[in-house]
Design a protein around this nucleic acid. Structure first.
Lengths: 194, 194
DNA sequence: CGTTGTTTTGAGATATGTCAACAGGGGTGG
DNA sequence: CCACCCCTGTTGACATATCTCAAAACAACG
């Protein structure tokens, strides 16, 4: 466990290696995973300018982080125009991602959500050269998928076995392979317009 | 209709009076409302630093807007430290709101979602002195509620009549009154500690 | 090899969706 | 001022996606 909702961390950190995820816990134990953090991501970016963290963060694999003093980091950002620009872009990107997630959870069915999740994860990993040719590292348990997609672990299991049966993906321990990208994109409602 | 997804608006605007909402439309017609814009809100804040808008915006009531040249506005922001700070705070707030919405859609049942929606709407309106004592202007049709909460209009209707029957709220044309705040907060899972 | 944590499978339950008919309200035109 | 109409909301019967519970099969791991 890296950070707990409600804290005011004195440090800001960057994920150097490994995976983590941001999530919220409801009083009755339900959990919603907000996003996964990959190498290169700023860990508390989302609450950089809030009093208190409004989510928790937890590691998924062993990680290496690189920490900065929070106040120092903020003023550093504040003073450097190029950094400032970067942060704004980063912020816009996060808002865009959140927007997509909201649409997924509010208006898409389970198989659609799963398909999109896989595709956007692959895209993020590819950009970092962590995935090639539809082969991605995949440290998530089905419970993580469930808590990300707003589903139940058993329903995730059923959909994954369905996906496998249809030859769309294969997922072994810690590795996911996209076997039929067309079909996956169809399911995701991402038609290829040439 | 104010703005369409995919556009690159040359102007940035502030909502002076009236209500609008941001939403995404899926190819098959499903719609997800992302947020409502109230007087004082920046209309394209969420895509201020993106190439293209990744959502559409539409008015809910007649509105007055105050427009600025986008490029000018950006450099204005960029140069003024106090403005910059404001934007960062605004951005953090939006991210926090998005986080809540994701949790609502992913992990809460319909009545919970509805209760919370009403309460956070009231809070936003109160801060602007647009609501007093649990009486709020309410220009939404049930279809808007449905598209916000990831539900169906008929299910929203059922829940609202239930809420009314339980004496929790009453909603007439364009006005919603919170009649039993305790019960509403319970439903919302916002227990009052102390 | 046991043990513990994860995934799979099945049967049955439930929240929410669909379809369709009806009711009310408020505008519009005659 | 009335009659009509369209839009929105309501209600009922039924359909379905997803959940729950529980057991069994697997996998990882000491």
């Amino acid at each position: 466990m890296l950070l707990r909702e409600g804290e005011t961390p004195a440090e800001v950190a960057t994920l150097v290696s490994g995976w983590a995820f941001r999530f919220k816990l409801l009083p009755d134990g339900r959990r919603q995973i907000l996003s996964f953090l990959l190498p290169g991501d700023l860990i508390v970016f989302h609450s950089l300018h809030e009093e208190k963290l409004n989510f928790s963060v937890r590691t998924l694999t062993p990680v290496q982080v690189c920490a900065f003093d929070a106040a120092e980091f903020r003023s550093f950002l504040f003073d450097r125009p190029s950094m400032r620009r970067d942060m704004q872009v980063y912020c816009a990107a996060e808002l865009t991602a959140a927007t997509e997630t909201i649409t997924d959870l509010g208006r898409r069915l389970a198989p659609e959500r799963l398909a999109r999740f896989i595709l956007v994860l692959e895209a993020r990993l590819s950009r970092r050269r962590l995935a090639e040719q539809g082969v991605l590292p995949f440290p998530l348990r089905q419970e993580h998928l469930a808590d990300t997609l707003g589903l139940t672990p058993v329903h995730v299991s059923r959909m994954l076995t369905q996906f496998r049966a249809d030859g769309i993906v294969s997922v072994a321990r810690n590795q996911l392979v996209i076997r039929n990208r067309n079909q996956l994109m169809n399911l995701a409602g991402m038609a290829m317009r040439s």
